[in-house]
Amino acid sequence: NDNKNKVVVDENSAIIKIFRGFQGELDAKHDKHERLVKISRDVTIDSKRTIFLLHRHRDGSDREGNDEILNDAKDKIKEIQNIRFLAMAEELEGEDPYQFMRAISPGMQEYIEAISFYYYLKHGQLISLNEIQKDLVFSKTGEDEQNKILTLNVPPIEYLLGLADLTGELMRLTINSVGAGNLETPYKICEFLQIVYDAFNSYGNTLKDLNRKMGTLRQSLRKVENACYTLHVRGSEIPKHMFADVFMTSGDDKYAEDVE
């Protein structure tokens, strides 16, 4: 490569000398960017797969498969953390993480979507930023045999954007739950989404990326509300004597009062 260039480039030129230096610097940056894009893409794929897997979970039912699904998902998430994100943290050691945010952001958001979906199914709660951050602190043995702490910083904005995507998955979970005759989950999710929606709304136009996702969030909420509505009006028709039969999966009879 160097030989080839020598044919035509005057290596004595001051300008050429300066640019030789830039070449390495630019290439190093681009290569790092490329590697981070690659890791981020892998994180995205793995996270999407985890979400797909989690959609086989049937919340509210005591299906024996549920625990297994959650365990599998947990394994996948651990793998993403310990392989993908560790690699990412190593790449970013000593860097301004925001310089490469465009490369890592898609993967990070998809991961936040996946882990918060997992957490919701497991605990029925929103995972906190702290909890997410906690999993992304790595301890690594350096060349000097000293233990070093590597932290992959999760900016709050990425956290918010990941949550915005979570709402789409929760909407899908609702649709699936209605199909599966699960009556509790839709109402729980509906309340959850209403709070998220109100909160995001109250942030206003501060965040461009978030604004872009607000339309989808609103649609998701409306779909979930409509699903609850459908459940409700349909539920109202159940003849009393059939009730236990139809809703045997749900130990909850708070809907009985709606039956005329």
């Binding site: 309340e191 209403q194 929606y197 109100d198 709304n201 109250s202 206003g204 509300e225």
Partner: peptide, 14 residues
Amino acid sequence: TREIQKVLQAIHQP
């Protein structure tokens, strides 16, 4: 305005 909206959103809740 957003605060008013938030207050009024309550009507959609159970």
